[in-house]
């Protein structure tokens, strides 16, 4: 009925990237620039438990505190999950079963991590069950708000205090996920980002920064170029999409699929029926039998599926985030 893969291009890009890292490492070992790669390899080896089906690495997008964009005061962290072949982990809405990955950050003096930004998920159909998640490899993104005043004060305080001279301002977290194949296993690990006295982060490398950038391109964006609204009647949610600007483009795809952010909104297993007319696209979705009342609004990700076709002209946007109001339609029953 439905095919399952995550966009081929993305998969290839990610694996190429990984191969590049390994190549670069071999090269630098030979040429003597060992330390950065050693750190990366060590990070990959150390993180997580040895028996885990998923190995996790945490890395920052920039090298240190002084490199953080002062316009946003946001540090982006990448949390790479390398998933054993045949297994998968879950998206924010896991679908019919499973569990979303969670990261519980410890309180920190000047860093305040926000919610996870999730790259576009893929669909897993098995045994009358549909779940949403990732196989192979995914880099979850976490924006971290940096308080400039507090960071300066704290870094200075420890500098002036000889006893704390070597103190590290480590940001740490506990991460939990469920990994499933034919069976499911809960796994967890400890994450940490060390910050030394000069404000340098642990785990930074150009390749790691590249992985964050790539992953960011896979996180569906909220674009104003599409307008959406929906009606719910007789157990069917009909989403109507209309172009909100010249840039909107109907993706030529027979695999358009809406992934709601929240569990229990739609019947995850049901086929979604897309119909395109001259200037609008409607998507009919069976709602969940566990939905008790009509929600005011629904947010989720609209994907062009396997086709990877873009929703915008001249850009490669195979998935967009949409929020739409829901009205109750007349019920013929």
């Amino acid at each position: 009925m439905v095919r399952v893969t995550w966009p081929r291009t993305a998969m290839i890009r990610l694996s190429e990237l990984f191969q590049k890292i390994m190549k670069k490492c071999r090269f630098t070992i030979i040429s003597g620039f060992l330390p950065p790669c050693l750190v990366l390899i060590l990070a990959i080896t150390i993180s997580g438990h040895a028996n885990n089906r998923v190995s996790v690495t945490l890395f920052p997008e920039v090298a240190g505190l002084t490199d953080i964009d002062s316009n946003t005061d946001t540090l982006w962290l990448g949390v790479a999950m390398n998933i054993m072949d045949g297994w998968h982990v879950y998206w924010r809405n896991p679908g019919d079963s499973g569990l979303p990955t969670t990261i519980r950050w410890d309180e920190h003096g000047f860093l305040t991590p926000d919610e996870i930004h999730w790259p576009q998920p893929t669909r897993f159909d098995e045994d009358g069950i549909t779940t949403y998640g990732y196989s192979d490899r995914v880099v979850l993104l976490v924006p971290v708000n940096v308080s400039r005043e507090k960071s300066k004060a704290q870094m200075c305080a420890s500098e002036n205090n000889t006893a704390n001279k070597n103190q590290q301002h480590t940001l740490s977290a506990h991460m939990n996920w469920l990994v499933c194949k034919d069976i499911c296993l809960p796994e967890s690990t400890h994450l940490s980002l060390a910050i030394d006295q000069e404000g340098n982060f642990s785990g930074y490398s150009k390749t790691a920064a590249g992985m964050i950038e790539l992953s960011r391109s896979l996180v569906p964006k909220n674009v104003s170029d599409w307008q959406a609204e929906a009606e719910l009647a007789s157990g069917i949610l009909t989403i109507t999409l209309e172009p909100g600007s010249e840039k909107a483009l109907f993706p030529d795809s027979d695999d358009i699929y809406f992934y709601p952010h929240k569990q229990g909104m739609i019947e995850h297993t049901a086929p979604q029926i897309a119909t395109a007319t001259d200037n609008r696209l409607t998507l009919e979705i069976e709602i969940s039998r566990y939905l008790r009342s009509t929600p005011d609004r629904i947010t989720g990700v609209l994907s062009s599926g396997d086709s990877g076709k873009s929703w915008l002209r001249n850009r490669n946007i195979p998935a967009i985030e949409i929020t739409f109001p829901v009205t109750s339609g007349a019920n013929p029953e």
């Binding site: 098995e126 779940t131 229990g264």
Partner: peptide, 14 residues
Amino acid sequence: EINTYQPYGCTVKY
């Protein structure tokens, strides 16, 4: 009050 709620768990291994 609550007669349905999104179930959670492992898939049934049919």
